Amino acid sequence: MGLEVESRSSDSPYIERVWRSTSSGGLDRMTSVAITCGELVVWEHRGQVSVAVRGPETKASAAPVPEDATFFGITFSPGSWMPHLPFHRLVDRYADLPDATRRSFSLKGSTWRLPDYDNAEAFVRRLAREDVLDRDPVVAAVLRGESPGLSERTVQRRFVAATGLTRVAIRQIERARRAAVLIQEGTPIPDVIDRLGYFDQPHLARSLTRYIGRTATRLGDGDPVEPLSLLYKT
Rank of each mutant, 00 (worst) to 15 (best):
T101K: 04
F105D: 00
L107S: 01
L107P: 08
L107K: 09
L107E: 00
T111R: 14
P115Q: 10
Y117E: 06
Y117G: 00
D118S: 15
D118C: 12
A122G: 09
F123R: 04
V124P: 11
R126C: 09
R126V: 01
A128S: 05
E130I: 02
V132G: 11
L133M: 04
L133F: 08
D134N: 08
D134R: 07
R135E: 00
P137Y: 08
V138C: 02
V139H: 14
A140N: 03
A140H: 11
R144M: 04
G145S: 08
G145D: 03
P148D: 02
L150E: 03
L150C: 07
T154V: 10
V155E: 14
R158L: 01
F159T: 05
V160L: 10
V168C: 03
I173K: 14
R175I: 06
A176L: 01
R177L: 12
R177A: 02
R178C: 15
R178D: 14
A179Y: 10
A179W: 02
I183P: 12
I183W: 13
Q184R: 15
E185T: 11
G186F: 05
P188H: 03
D191Q: 08
I193G: 10
D194P: 04
R195P: 00
L196I: 00
L196C: 05
Y198N: 03
Y198R: 06
